[in-house]
């Protein structure tokens, strides 16, 4: 645990000392502010569900850009050699880095807290869906970051890592649409695997354990694959 937190701290240090994080946060906040303005001004609704859905879509692009450097950069610069010859296991390295990326995403999400605050101050929003939306966003984003981390463990080049991560995430997002082509058993499986299907309920204020279990087990599995990928690297 000590090692994991030390690595998480280091990753957060990298994020906050790099211009990429600030550029991403600016883009994220600007677009969210714009969507929020449109929804509230034109629809006159004290409701975050459209904004939340929109954030989920921005995450498709945002998360692979956050996670791309995690392992790629260490391998490109050779610092991986020092990290992996310290008494740190592959699992600790993967978890530490994952938590660092989640911390970065959580920081960006926290910067949008003023939006629901406006709703509470000037309207009467339903509080439940606000909470569940943010929980859903954090889980969705963490799932994306796990995939992005896996991509980063496979590619030495950050751009390749970002593109690979983005491809995997988009594919999982789109699975729900493609599901209708097939007959019921296949459709059900594909829909269950889709990130999109599990996200909708959170924006409506529904906390379903099935969705929680889906995201958590998905994250666990992808992180496990990342550990294997890091271990496998040694043999090349």
């Amino acid at each position: 645990m000590h090692n994991i937190l030390a690595i998480t701290r280091k990753e957060l240090h990298h994020y906050f000392s790099s211009p990429i994080a600030y550029a991403l946060a600016t883009m994220f906040l600007f677009i969210n502010g714009f969507v929020f303005l449109m929804v509230v001004y034109f629809q006159q609704q004290a409701d975050m569900s459209v904004v939340t859905m929109n954030m989920g879509v921005i995450f498709l692009f945002l998360c692979p850009l956050i996670s791309m450097r995690l392992f790629s950069e260490e391998r490109r610069t050779g610092t991986m050699e020092l990290l992996m010859t310290a008494p740190v296991t592959e699992t600790q390295a993967v978890l530490g880095k994952f938590l660092g990326a989640v911390g970065m995403l959580a920081a960006m999400l926290a910067l949008t807290f003023h939006l629901p605050l406006f709703l509470i101050l000037f309207g009467k929003p339903d509080i439940g869906p606000l909470w569940s939306s943010y929980l859903g966003l954090l889980l969705l984003g963490s799932g994306y970051l796990a995939l992005g981390l896996l991509a980063s463990s496979l590619a030495k080049n950050q751009v390749v890592a970002a593109v690979t991560g983005f491809g995997m995430i988009l594919f999982l997002w789109l699975l729900s649409a493609s599901g209708d082509i097939f007959s019921p058993p296949v459709t059900d499986i594909l829909k269950y695997l889709s990130f999109f299907e599990h996200f909708g309920d959170f924006t409506k204020g529904v906390l379903d354990t099935r969705h929680l279990i889906f995201y958590l087990s998905f994250i666990g599995y992808v992180l496990y694959l990342s550990v294997l990928s890091i271990r496998n690297r040694k043999w090349r």
């Binding site: 280091k10 240090h13 990298h14 000392s17 790099s18 610069t77 050779g78 610092t79 050699e81 020092l82 010859t85």
Partner: peptide
């Protein structure tokens, strides 16, 4: 290691 790989932003 050879060439002392370090984190330049720290």
């Amino acid at each position: 290691p050879e060439n002392a790989p370090l984190y330049p932003d720290m």
